[in-house]
Amino acid sequence: MKLTFTIQGGDFTHAGHPSSEVKKILKQLAIDGKTIKNIVIALYEAEVNVVAHAWKGTVNVEIDENKITIWVIDEGPGIPDVELAMQPGFSTASSKVREMGFGAGMGLPNIKKNTDKLQIETEVGKGTKVKMVNYFS
């Protein structure tokens, strides 16, 4: 099964929509609750990263028999130092984003913690491609 969603940079109104849709589908497929929780956390954080930092993005979801693969691909500023960005507490979010309670430097660490495989490809000035894989137990 394949799904695609688009995300607009700066549009916090619709942040969480892809996560919510994916959650519904995984529930229908009777995937176990813990796995669904992990996937929802990772996808939501990736969505918010696009909304908070990028100009626009796409979420591509592929659900197989034994796993879910999610690509979150954005056109945006890219990440100059991925290792630094992965550190809990490190954030480049604007003060407006922080006032909303985002931008605490927990997004990427949350994604890492809740995925079985995580791959980040990024180019400064162009964008970032995040690939996340979760296996169904």
Binding site: F12, K37, Y44, M100
Partner: peptide, 14 residues
């Protein structure tokens, strides 16, 4: 103390 709608998105997802 957050009052914006992303609170609901998160509460619902969780």
């Amino acid at each position: 103390l957050q009052v914006h709608q992303n609170v609901i998105a998160i509460a619902s997802l969780k």
